[in-house]
Design a binder for these strands. Structure first.
Lengths: 199, 199
DNA sequence: AATATAACAGAACGAGCGTTCTAGTATGAT
DNA sequence: ATCATACTAGAACGCTCGTTCTGTTATATT
């Protein structure tokens, strides 16, 4: 009954997300988002209400597209410590693959550090994100326990891994070079090794 | 030979720093800084050149005033693991003492996540900050080694502690509640316990 | 084919941004 | 006491911000 939308929502969200991810919420202007998406201002406002609405859609798009990259293997993998090692390898890959298309660090960590104290939406989303990450680590550590790779405890170690991931994302966004990032990841890998029982 | 300054530089820096710390670089406007410091616009521009100059002075003020709070005991304390435990207690205190006067988290971590990829000054300052923190952890762990509290290794564990601190600062700024913060710190405390050799 | 509907492009809005300018003022050196 | 200096307050600058408005265009239904 009316003219159909000319743009693909996912494509637009991907472009807007990349801009917000790279520049942050305040530094990315609506004009920047118009340029990045190639969609007119009025169309963006029609589809997402306002800048914050587009931001929320981008955060959801990020959670739906990026979280599954690690959640599956970590939470429901078939191994234990190796699944966590694979997660760390994933993070190591981030630093070498960083480009204009895929900024470094993590959108949720970036924007929650920027706006977490004043923006309930991003605060809640970041809390969910950490909860999901912690839950996934606990699952992987529980499998490691059942496989006889490690002993107790599980929970405290999962919290440490959450902090490690949050720290890595923060340091990535802070502009650390590849050498430092790799050194930090190696530290976490050695931590995993130290948890493993002698074979 | 000329009219002397009416404001005290440290007092002004403390007020400006608090505002930038709480709101971030982009969200804190020059008008906000004028209001917070009580100093006129022209005076601020006379003394600090521009907004970024005032920001740099605030970062230096933060590094000079806040870093010594943990650096001394951690780098040159007389104990080992207990000095690291004291550092964690310091962080635990931060979450309960947060007020308008002293925002939560860490100014350097907040602004380096916000601007680290584009602002060389904050990137370098954040790198120095992590290097100093890592060096302090290595010193404390070395003392713990000499005291017979722990065995090798030192370096990888120091990196893990740096990540833990960065992660805590990130989560603090993300608006996590006291319960979660405490749970994460307990995780790190248990990690320290697990490094200690049986007495 | 005619109509109703909504997306489209781009101009325009007031508000706020960082910065500069215009005066006026208070002080140390002569 | 006079002068040079650099502080002070506040108005004003051009610019960009997020948002809204004005037509125009394209499609699904009748």
């Amino acid at each position: 009954m009316a003219r159909p939308r000319e743009f693909d929502t996912d494509t637009v969200l991907e472009a807007a997300m990349t801009t917000l991810w790279r520049d942050g919420y305040e530094s990315a202007s609506v004009s920047d988002l118009v340029d990045a998406t190639g969609v007119g201002r009025a169309s963006l406002y029609n589809a997402f209400d306002d800048k914050h609405g587009l931001f929320e859609a981008c955060l959801r798009h990020y959670a739906e597209g990026r979280v599954p990259l690690w959640r599956g293997q970590l939470a429901e993998g078939e191994r234990g410590l190796d699944d966590i090692r694979a997660f760390l390898s994933l993070l190591r890959g981030v630093v070498t693959e960083s480009s204009e298309a895929a900024p470094t660090g993590c959108l949720i960590v970036n924007t929650s550090v920027e706006r977490g104290s004043t923006d309930p939406f991003v605060r809640d989303m970041a809390a969910d994100y950490r909860e999901e990450l912690g839950s996934a680590f606990r699952a992987a550590l529980s499998r490691a326990l059942e496989l006889g790779e490690i002993d107790e405890p599980i929970d405290g170690r999962a919290e440490v891994l959450v902090l490690g991931a949050m720290g890595l994302f923060a340091v990535l966004s802070a502009g650390a070079d590849a050498t430092e990032i790799n050194r930090l990841i190696v530290g976490l890998e050695h931590l995993l090794d130290s948890w493993a029982k002698p074979a």
